[in-house]
Amino acid sequence: MCETAVNLDIVVPNETRYLRFVGAIAEQLAKELDVQEDKRDTLAFHLNLALTEAVANAIQYSAAASAKDSVRICLSVKDSYLSVRVFDHGGGFDLAAVPAPDFDELGERGRGIFFIRSVMDSVQYSKTDSGNVLEMRKKIA
């Protein structure tokens, strides 16, 4: 199987109306990758979901901190791994402290990170010089 080298660097305004656009990029990327045909639609859905949740969080954090008015997204594929990084300029949060949802609790919020963890192989959140970054990785082959 040949390697597909992809590096996408996307900056979108800090507005929720761009979530549809970001989700569409994720779906399109899945169509371009070297993956088994029967897994392609699921991968497209999962990337759409992970990116939508991550960017919605970044918009929310940045808005709460009255920070920069854009969100940066880096998508790259290397050695059969897809890496998605979403930068925010808010106060940051402790990913390790985000609990798994209590399925008997019918709260209206708090499922976004759970969805990301469910559809990606690994999730990390750290502070860098260019803002906080949520990095999600997934093996694609």
């Binding site: 989700g23 979901l49 939508t52 019918l106 709260g107 209206e108 499922r111």
Partner: peptide
């Protein structure tokens, strides 16, 4: 497609 905020909106209606 529905995300976590969409589920939240439907849960609000349900409750």
């Amino acid at each position: 497609f529905i995300d976590s905020s969409g589920l939240g909106a439907l849960l609000s209606g349900y409750k």
